[in-house]
Design a protein around this nucleic acid. Structure first.
Length: 329
RNA sequence: AGGCCAGUAGCUCAAUUGGCAGAGCGCCUGUCUCCAAAACAGGAGGUUGUGGGUUCGAUUCCUGCCUGGCCUGCCA
C-alpha cells in the first residue's frame, strides 16, 4: 500500500437504496479518494434524527446504503466505513464544541433557514446544532480533508471557526482545522427534468433497480417539450436524456444522438432505449457485486462493526486530548 | 406550571345558526403524441389529532389527553 496523503472524512444520511444522483455526486468520488487518502466514511444516523419522525426504516436504510457503498467499490479493508451512533464519542465532542459556538452563527446558516421553512413544526434543538454535530464528526477523526459539494462550504467554514475558537479558548492545538475539497458535483437532474434527483421527489433511478425497471424509468423521463412529433427536430441542450448520454454513452454515440435528434433522424424512444442500454451495462458490475453481497447481510453488518471499532480507537484518542485540553478533572 | 390559539386528503386550505366532508396542487388511469411534457376527460385517496359527553344527528358545542405555536411564571 502506497503512502497516503492524509485523512478524508465524509458522511451521508441513511437514505436507503442509493440512486444515480448519489452515485455521481458522492459515492463515485468516495471510491476514487481511496487511492490517495486514508478514508473514513460515515452513515450519519444521528443527524437523520433531526428530521425524521419515525425510525422504523432506519436500520433497513442503513443496511441498503452500506450495501450500495460496498458494491460501488468502497474497500472496507482500507477504508473505515461505519455508523455514526456506534461511536458515542461524537456526541460528547458535540457538547464541548457547542460551548464555543455562538447561537447566531447557527441560525444564520442557509441550511438551517431552509429547514425552518420546510419543517416549521419540528424546529428542534438538535436541528439548530446540526452543524456542531457535523463539526464534531469531522474533527473527531482528525480529518485533513472533507470532500463536499459547494453547498456545504458554509458548514466546513463553520467547522474551521469552531476549531479555532476551541483551540484558542483552551490554548491548545489538539483539534485539527480541516481543509475543504470542493468536489465538482455534477448536478444530476431527476427524471422530471426539473429538480435535482432525489428519493423524496420520486424522480430518481436506483442503482440497484433491475434493467427493466431502469428502462421503465428512463422512458418516463421528460424530454424537449418542443419536440411534439417524431418528425419534429429536437434540442438536446434542453433534454435531460442527453445529459445522461454524455455520462453513460460513448463519444461517438453522444455525437450521433446530438446530430440525429436535431434533424429528427432518431426519435426520443430510440434515444432513450440506447441511453438505458448503456446505463444498464455500466451498472451491471455494480448490480452483480450487490446481489452477491446481499447473500450475506451479516457480512455487511460485520463491516460496519469492524469500521466502528477502528473509528472508536481514533475517536477515543482524540477525546483524551480534548478532555485534557479543556481541563476536565 | 398557568393563559391564549391551532390540528380536516400526500401538501395548502374550505365547509353558512349543529344537517350527506369539498376545492386547488400532487398522485393513478384514459385520449392525444415516436416517448415524455402540455391540454382535455375520468378515478383513487379521510376513524375531520385522540378518548369521553350533549344531541335524532357533531368537523362544528362541552370535557380529558396528545402535538405544535405565542405569552406569563418557576427551576437549573
Amino acid at each position: 500500500m502506497k503512502q497516503k496523503k492524509g485523512r478524508v472524512f465524509s458522511g451521508a444520511r441513511p437514505t436507503g437504496r442509493q440512486h444515480l444522483g448519489n452515485y455521481l455526486g458522492a459515492i463515485k468520488n468516495y471510491v476514487a479518494l481511496q487511492d490517495d487518502y486514508e478514508c473514513v466514511y460515515c452513515i450519519v444516523d444521528i443527524h437523520a434524527l433531526t428530521t425524521m419522525e419515525t425510525t422504523l426504516a432506519l436500520r433497513q436504510n442503513t443496511y441498503e446504503m452500506a450495501l450500495d457503498w460496498l458494491a460501488a467499490g468502497i474497500r472496507p479493508d482500507e477504508t473505515i466505513m461505519f455508523v455514526q451512533s456506534h461511536v458515542p464519542q461524537v456526541t460528547e465532542l458535540h457538547t464541548y464544541l457547542s460551548m464555543v459556538t455562538p447561537l447566531g452563527k447557527l441560525t444564520d446558516l442557509p441550511t438551517f433557514k431552509e429547514k425552518v421553512r420546510l419543517q416549521p413544526q419540528n424546529v428542534n434543538y438538535g436541528l439548530v446544532g446540526y452543524p456542531v454535530l457535523m463539526a464534531a464528526d469531522i474533527v473527531l477523526y482528525r480529518t485533513n480533508l472533507v470532500p463536499v459539494g459547494i453547498d456545504q462550504a458554509p458548514h466546513i467554514e463553520f467547522t474551521r471557526e469552531v476549531v479555532r475558537s476551541f483551540n484558542y479558548r483552551y490554548q491548545t492545538d489538539v483539534l485539527i482545522e480541516p481543509e475543504m475539497k470542493a468536489t465538482e458535483t455534477p448536478k444530476v437532474i431527476g427524471i422530471d427534468g426539473q429538480q435535482k434527483m432525489s428519493k423524496s421527489l420520486d424522480n430518481h433511478i436506483e442503482l440497484a433497480a433491475t434493467p427493466e425497471e431502469t428502462l421503465q424509468r428512463v422512458m418516463m423521463m421528460v424530454t424537449d417539450p418542443q419536440r411534439m412529433r417524431r418528425t419534429d427536430p429536437g434540442n438536446p441542450d434542453v433534454c435531460n436524456v442527453f445529459s445522461f448520454h454524455k455520462i453513460f454513452s460513448t463519444a461517438e454515440e453522444v455525437e450521433m444522438v446530438n446530430l440525429e435528434c436535431r434533424r429528427a433522424g432518431i426519435g426520443c424512444v430510440d434515444c432513450k432505449r440506447l441511453m438505458a442500454k448503456n446505463l444498464n451495462e455500466s451498472l451491471q458490475p455494480f448490480r452483480e457485486r450487490r446481489s452477491e453481497l446481499a447473500q450475506n447481510p451479516d457480512q455487511v453488518w460485520d463491516v460496519l462493526q469492524e469500521g466502528a471499532k477502528r473509528a472508536r480507537a481514533i475517536a477515543e484518542e482524540t477525546m483524551q486530548g480534548v478532555r485534557r485540553a479543556i481541563g476536565l478533572p
